[in-house]
């Protein structure tokens, strides 16, 4: 009897392993759900709302991919991942893709066996100070105490920046953003440093926001990108082009509202290819030709997603900056759909 248990287990393992070796696309379709790794608590980018539904800029990327692949933006299972668990969760197959404000770096791209498919937000590290400090540039922060999150690239960037400018600082270690904000307001540090988007969100909620300035220097490049596992290039293509469909849609003025209208009337061959009216773009990546249309319908084009979650009209109030279209002086540049 024990033998049969053993063989049964072996057979089961082989069966499971066999099923898993199919492509990610097949897995997602068979499951009927996209498993998306997200940040459970980053203002504007990803967090469950009062009803427990995930909302945010990164979350919208998951919805677009789910809409493109499965035809329904709601068919996403969100997996809350911490800074420590995110890459292992992706590598071990617990999630299908990562939309969790992860900086694209050489080490992560190569060593960790990830593929960063597209940058969805260009961020950078900045400093926040109280006006009463009388500082107007980060270069004047010599000798300051700085609140900084431990164990992050932020901490290393800070050390590099002060070293290269021959300045000294005293770090005040904090564990998370809430603590940083609290310490900064209580006067435990002269300056608080983190990603500029985070600084803007924090500043917007401070009682004395008018007294707080964000210094003009951005001391690091933080291209926050969508990531997939190494080794399934077709799945990487799907995520990449679902995202670029949103960027291209903004460039060509296609919104959630006018999508059908544009589709009915446009003569522009690039738009016709994007919307699946000509050629067979979708078929080439294993989807149907309407995939881009559905991705855009999920939560609108890139600009609409930006405005709805973190843009000037929200209380976070981020400017487009580097994230504007290349035609507007930004870095958002979708390769041609051809």
């Amino acid at each position: 009897m024990k033998k049969s248990v053993f063989f049964g287990t072996v057979a089961l393992v082989a069966l499971v392993a066999g099923a898993a070796s199919a492509s990610t696309l097949d897995d997602v379709k068979a499951r009927g759900q996209l498993i998306c790794g997200v940040n459970p608590g980053l203002t504007g980018f990803g967090a469950p709302d009062a009803n427990g539904n995930y909302q945010g800029f990164d979350v919208a990327a998951c919805k677009a991919v789910a809409a493109a692949v499965l035809g329904d933006p709601m068919k996403v299972q969100y997996k809350a991942l911490t800074g420590e668990t995110r890459f292992t969760a992706l590598a071990s197959g617990e999630v299908d893709m990562l939309a969790r404000n992860s900086t694209w770096t050489f080490g992560r791209d190569t060593e960790l066996a990830l593929d960063f498919v597209a940058v969805n937000y260009y961020d950078g590290q900045g400093f926040m100070v109280n006006k009463s400090l009388g500082v107007s540039s980060a270069k004047e922060l010599d000798g300051a105490t700085v609140c900084v999150q431990t164990g992050t690239t932020t901490e290393m960037n800070l050390a590099d920046y002060f070293k290269s400018n021959n300045m000294t600082y005293t770090p005040v270690n904090i564990a998370d953003d809430a603590e940083g904000q609290q310490k900064f307001l209580a006067g435990a540090c002269d300056s608080y440093t983190t990603d500029a988007s985070g600084l803007a969100a924090s500043r917007a909620t401070m009682p004395n926001a008018a007294d707080i300035v964000i210094l003009p220097e951005i001391i690091s490049k933080e291209p926050l990108a969508l990531a997939v596992r190494h080794g399934d290039n077709n799945w990487g293509d799907i995520v990449r082009w679902s995202f670029y469909a949103l960027v291209a849609a903004e460039e060509y003025g296609i919104t959630k509202a006018n999508l059908e209208e544009v589709a009915a009337s446009t003569q522009n061959p690039e738009i016709r290819r994007l919307l699946g009216l000509e050629g067979d773009m979708g078929k080439k990546i294993g989807l149907d030709n309407d995939f881009a249309k559905r991705a855009i319908m999920a939560s609108g084009n890139y600009g609409e997603i930006f405005e709805a979650n973190i843009g000037a009209s929200t209380s976070i109030g981020l400017a487009r900056g580097l994230n504007a279209q290349w035609t507007q002086g930004g870095l958002m540049y979708a390769p041609p759909f051809r």
Binding site: P40, G41, T43, A47, T85
Partner: peptide, 27 residues
């Protein structure tokens, strides 16, 4: 368990609630 991405009451849920723009800044 917050460190493995589960929502414990102390840090997990507090983090989620605080990331709402309406409550960001409560400590």
């Amino acid at each position: 368990v917050t460190f493995v991405g589960l929502f414990d009451p102390l840090k997990g849920i507090s983090g989620v609630v605080r990331s709402d723009m309406a409550w960001k800044g409560t400590y």
